[in-house]
Design a protein around this nucleic acid. Structure first.
Lengths: 126, 126
DNA sequence: TAACTGTATTATTTTATTTAGTACAGTTAT
DNA sequence: ATAACTGTACTAAATAAAATAATACAGTTA
């Protein structure tokens, strides 16, 4: 299900959070779909269950999943845009920073437009 | 000169790298301009000189500054676009990931365009 | 010469991450 | 109801990363 780099400088639980977020965002995991259990994923990746749980806790905090004790962990339904306003602002800030860095290195306006259209297409394809 | 959060989860030296990159990218530090010495900045921020040096080494590795033993550290001149091609690709990848996340949260195409035009203006203003 | 520069090294402390082992309570299917 | 699942919590230990401390050396500059 995932490929993790155990000797990366970025913590395993963070890598997990990123990977799962990606699957949810790309629609490969749909609303209310069940995620692998903590123990199952722990076995599958040969990573300590505590590390998996830490990732799941983080995903729950960020609103990407919800967990029901005894039942399992599931993909959370999308929230209203207004509720995500702050998060969107932060993301736009990050994008701005990356754009500035990119332009400094010689990136073009068109490079961004291309990526944007690319993303819009992916989004429409769902 | 800087504001660092010593109790942030992100390492001090990384924060330093980001801050200085930002100053260079925004043009507040110009080519061949001298940076504060390792010891001066260490004193100023009350942070260990080794930590400062680690940040400077990282900035040098990334091509943002160059250092001359005995003289000081200076803002590196811009490199050719071709040389930065790989870096630009990575930045575009990151931007794409952020765009996907943003759209998932309800961000609009126009939000991006606005930021893009904003950045283009800043770039032209130099 | 004195006071600066960057750089290097070793040791120590502190903090973050990961693993290990165990436990408890709710759920599900046999 | 029993067995096998679920999430969650906790403590302890091991490992890795980050930061500090204390020196030292060689080049630069006034």
């Amino acid at each position: 299900m995932f490929e993790l780099d155990v000797r990366s400088r970025v913590p395993i639980y963070e890598q997990l959070v990123e990977k799962i977020k990606e699957l949810i965002i790309k629609g490969l995991l749909k609303e209310h779909e069940q995620l692998p259990s903590v123990r199952a994923l722990s076995n599958d990746l040969t990573i300590n269950p505590n590390t998996i749980q830490k990732a799941y806790r983080e995903l729950e905090n960020q609103g990407y999943i919800y967990s029901i004790p005894g039942k399992g962990s599931f993909v959370a339904p999308l929230k209203d845009k207004d509720i995500n306003k702050e998060k969107i602002e932060k993301i736009l800030e990050e994008i701005k920073k990356l754009m500035l860095e990119g332009f400094h290195l010689g990136m073009n306006r068109e490079d961004i437009i291309k990526v944007l259209e690319d993303v819009v297409k992916i989004k429409e394809g769902k």
